[in-house]
Amino acid sequence: MKLYIEKLMIIFNREFTGYFRTPLASIFLLVFLALSAGMTFFMGQFFQRGQADLNSFFVWHPWLFLILMPAIGMRLWAEERKSGTIELLMTLPVTNSQLVLGKFLASWFFTLLAIIMTIPIWITVNYLGEPDNGVIFISYLGSWLMAGCFLSLTSCLSMLTKNQVIAFIVSTISCFIMVMAGFGLVLASVRSWAPLWFTEVIQSFSFLSHFKRIQYGVLDLTTFIFFISMIIICISINIFLVQLKKAD
């Protein structure tokens, strides 16, 4: 087990520092912080609402992640396949699960870094009023879990192509579908022709429905299990795809 984690950490470190070897990290962090702040203060009308909470901050996260997570995850496997380094990587004494997990965790913790950098907004709301910090903490946790779902899905899809642009587009569309499944308009249109159970199934798969509950401070077991199991499913498919598509 110790050896397993050791190898995983070597992969993790290479991938994580990889974000900083190119301008990708700084561009991503800058765009994420600028967009999340802009959306909170201008579109979310943070001050006008006059409420000491961060709803106007978290409400944009599914939409921000929709574009930004595929941008972070698109290179994970597509680049390895294109440059041929996948051959090098997979002839090293390492298992597919170590590779997939190491890469995924690197992108997920990079996202955590971006999320942590928004903490000044949390401090601001505490300065201005008395928010429920428990709710905010749970929202942060939920936001990171949701980012993990987007990333694991993107990582999985980036194994299917050698082209990063294709990986990005397909991932964004897939993430969009996962978010939209819980959108009122979509549910209403399904409800008009499908039985109730079907509508509920669609809604239960939506990132938006689950994230909304978290946003109000409700991190119940179902939501937690949903996000974690989505990540586990995507990673398992990813491991399978690495074996299947490595030599294509």
């Binding site: 990889g18 041929g84 380094t85 051959e87 090098l88 002839t91």
Partner: peptide, 13 residues
């Protein structure tokens, strides 16, 4: 020890 065809390596390192 293996040198794959085209000697691929991580070009950003």
């Amino acid at each position: 020890g293996y040198l794959p065809e085209g000697a691929p390596s991580y070009s950003d390192m």
